[in-house]
Design a protein around this nucleic acid. Structure first.
Length: 413
RNA sequence: GGAGGGAUGGCAGAGCGGACGAAUGCGACGGUCUUGAAAACCGUUGGGCCUCCGGGUCCCGUGGGUUCGAAUCCCACUCCCUCCGCCA
């Protein structure tokens, strides 16, 4: 949720919102509504004060004086009801509009859209395309079965089989261990959440059509563990000395991928269901920019540790999600496409999400929240399938995963 | 799925239409006393929002309702506990 007071007072903040794609007219309309709401609140509270005082006097008054006083208080009550209706209407309008205003981009975020990200740095070599892309190779190896996945659940669902299923589990262990050693509390969170939780975590109303909904039970399948991790300290007051609080959630993730028809249709690059280890930090307001760099470094440790070449990019304002003030993507090199593709990302939400979550730091306003991917398993497998392919068709397991897989190489089939 | 019981301040727990933002105890903080500590005694001790900075307002699980007035009465919902059934 946008900081309305700051939106009114701070020109740079307002400009940051517009850089993110907020409609300047909508911002103006919102500020106007909010100022009317405030004045309506003052009027209403003044009326209520009079009504409260009148009622209290009745309790003190002599019995014979009461009827007249009750009548007078009744008149005030009607007047108050009108003012309350007006206030409620204004408050609803403010809230509805405020939810559509994105978190302003930080000054270090470049202008523009998808193609305007700035490269921060690059690690490893851009290798040549392997004989087979990940989809073809993984099907040939019996690692994934897309046809049967489609028969069971429709397009963009896959079976993960044989050694690949074990590698998936190894990736979970590897990512989880790395972040737990960095101080994150391991969590297996709920993956079905309420409507309120979706709103407070910042996904509704903006990303509603990406989310699977269980209408009968009024629950939603999360697209990322970020949602339930954001819920851990919802409506809580955190002590400054217990911060930062860092959590690593392992969960399945469900995404409708509406509007992506025809995009990334091969293999398991983009699927409706996948597993992911997600990092989430609650920090004091002054610490969030340092924390963003820390998340990025951890991601580099994890992706670099797997031996994947990658680069880090600073995402442009127009390509940021509503809640992010800044976002880094780690893009790994995908040999079959001859380009870098997103493998993880991390964002600083500042107090944007915490305001909706009503998560505060005692004496320091709202907490700042950040999140980042530790490892999105299916997506990571795509890269590992391509980079691990050998000339003889065998597939080599990254060294860091071997303690969990129990095998080093898978012979060609 | 069925039947009961419950939800009040950091915690425990009273209050069940009128000076209740809320007794009391514990805890925490400050002070007196003490070489220091404990004990004892005294005092302080939730938060949100608005503000013409005087103050005002809202919060006793949540949302409605009754009333001049609700922690207290009514309705709905949520969560927790106990028992029965079912189940991984």
């Amino acid at each position: 949720m946008i900081d309305l007071r700051r939106l009114a007072d701070d020109e740079a903040y307002r400009a940051g919102a517009v850089r993110k794609g907020a409609n300047a007219d909508a911002v103006g309309q919102l500020l106007d509504l909010e100022s009317r709401r405030r004045s309506s609140q003052s009027t209403t509270e003044e009326l209520r004060a009079r009504q409260n005082a009148a009622s209290k006097e009745i309790g003190r008054a002599a019995p014979e004086d009461r009827p007249a006083r009750i009548e007078e208080a009744g008149r005030l009550k009607d007047e108050l009801a009108t003012a309350e209706d007006e206030l409620r209407t204004l408050a609803d309008e403010v809230r509805e509009l405020a939810l559509t205003i994105p978190n302003p981009a930080h000054e270090s975020v470049p202008d523009g859209g998808e193609d305007d990200a700035i490269m921060v740095h690059e690690v490893g070599e851009q290798t040549e395309a392997p004989p087979r892309d990940h989809a073809e190779y993984a099907e040939a190896m019996g690692f994934i079965d897309l046809a049967r996945g489609a028969r069971t659940s429709g397009s963009r669902f896959a079976y993960l089989l044989r050694e690949a299923a074990l590698v998936e589990l190894a990736l979970v262990q590897y990512a989880m261990r790395t972040v737990v050693e960095a101080g994150f509390v391991p969590v297996v969170p709920p993956t079905l959440v309420t409507e309120d939780m979706m709103v407070d975590a910042g996904f509704f109303p903006t990303d509603r059509n990406q989310v699977y909904e269980l209408e009968r039970d009024a629950l939603h399948l999360v697209g990322t563990a970020e949602v339930p991790l954001a819920g851990i300290h919802r409506q809580e007051r955190l002590a400054a000395d217990e911060l930062p609080l860092r959590y690593a959630g392992f969960s399945s993730c469900f995404r409708r991928e509406a509007g992506t028809y025809g995009k990334d249709t091969r293999g398991i690059f983009r699927v409706h269901q996948f597993d992911k280890v997600e990092m989430f930090s609650y920090v004091a307001p002054d610490d969030s920019w340092d924390e963003l760099e820390r998340l990025r470094e951890l991601q580099e440790t994890i992706i670099g540790g797997l031996g994947l070449p990658y680069r880090v990019v600073n995402i442009a304002a127009g390509d940021l999600g509503a809640a992010a003030a800044k976002k880094y993507d780690l893009e790994a090199w995908l040999p079959s496409e001859g380009r870098y593709r997103e493998i993880t990302s991390c964002s600083n939400y500042l107090d944007f999400s915490a305001r909706r979550l009503d998560c505060r730091v005692a004496g320091a306003g709202f907490a700042h929240t950040l999140n980042g991917t530790a490892c999105a398993i299916s997506r990571t497998l795509v890269f590992l399938f391509e980079h691990g392919q050998q000339a003889d068709g065998s597939w080599v397991v990254p060294e860091v995963l071997r303690p969990w897989t129990g095998f080093d190489v898978v012979e060609p089939r």
